[in-house]
Computed example of a mutant assay.
Amino acid sequence: MSRKTKTPNNEDNDNSRRGVIKTLGLGLSLATLPAFISAESVNISTEALDPGESIIPLEERDLIEMHKFIEDCITANKDSNPQEAVKEVLARAVSNPSEMLKAIGPPTEAGLKVFLRSKDITIFAASWTPQMNLMPHNHLMWANIGIYTGREDNILWKRTENGLEASKAKCLFEGDVAMLNANAIHSVTNPLKRFTGGLHIYGGDFFATERSQWDPETLIEEPSNGDVIKNIFKEANEQLLKMKKD
C-alpha cells in the first residue's frame, strides 16, 4: 500500500498549491497536532485539490498512508454517491486501527486534529476523554465516523410533535464505521475509562455551518458553532484534570 509522496519541483507553484496548517480558530496549537505535523509549509502533491482547499503537510515515510488517505477522500467525494464512496475509503483506513493510531498519535486530551477543511469536505480526528458525553447535536451535512481507538456509543434522535425523542442506539468499536445523513441528530458517549479516537469526515465545511444542539436534561434546542464546541472540549479536559487530582 505504500506510496511515495510527490513533491512538485518547479518554482511556479504558489501558496495555493502548498500544504498549509489550519487551526480553524478552535484554539488548537502545534502542540495539539500529531507529532508528524511540521510547523513549516512544504510542497506536497495536491493534484486532487480544488481551489480553496488546503491540506496539512505530510513529510515522513510513516505519513505516506495518511497522505494517500486524504487524497483518496478528496477523490471519492467527487463520486456520484460521495458519502458511500468516502465511507469505503474510511473503512479501509480504520480496518487496521493500530496503524491509524500510530499515524495520528495516541489521544491525550479532548480535541480535534484537523487534516482538511474545504467547502466540500472536512476531515479531522476527534478525541473523547474517558467517559466523555456530547449532548444531542446535528451536522446539517452527511457524516462518516470511523473509530481507530476506544469505543463510541451513539444515540440517534428524531424530531416529533412532542419534541426530541431517542430513536435507536449504535455502538462503534475499533474498526467500525457509521454513516449519518444530513438530517441526523445524535449524542455521543465514550463509555470507557480511556480515550476514544475517531476519524470524522463531513460533506461540507463543518466549521462554517451554524448547527443546533439540545440541552441534555431539558432537550431544548440551542445554537451550536465552533466556539461552543471549543468550550465543550475545554470543560472535558478540565474535568479530566480534576479527576486525576482526586
Rank of each mutant, 00 (worst) to 15 (best):
E84N: 08
M132I: 00
K242A: 14
A126S: 11
L156R: 01
W214N: 11
A76H: 03
V228H: 11
P8G: 05
N138V: 04
Q213E: 10
E59M: 06
N190Q: 08
P51L: 06
K6V: 12
E60R: 13
M141N: 11
S16P: 01
E235H: 10
A110V: 00
G198V: 04
I64D: 12
G175Y: 02
L63D: 12
K4R: 14
A208K: 15
S2E: 09
L134V: 12
K170L: 13
S127T: 01
P97S: 03
R151K: 15
Q83A: 13
R92G: 05
L172E: 03
P191M: 14
I55N: 08
A91E: 10
C73E: 06
T32I: 01
I55E: 09
R61G: 06
S187N: 00
V114P: 10
L156V: 10
I232E: 00
D50M: 07
F233S: 02
D50G: 01
E165Q: 13
A31P: 02
N183I: 01
K168L: 02
L140G: 00
W157G: 05
S16G: 01
I147S: 08
G226R: 15
D205Y: 04
M1G: 03
A91Y: 02
N181F: 08
V94D: 03
Q131A: 06
G19E: 04
S80K: 14
E165D: 05
H186A: 02
I55W: 00
A125V: 07
F124P: 04
W128V: 04
M1D: 05
L180D: 04
N96L: 08
T75Y: 01
D50R: 07
R92Q: 08
M135N: 12
G111N: 08
S224G: 08
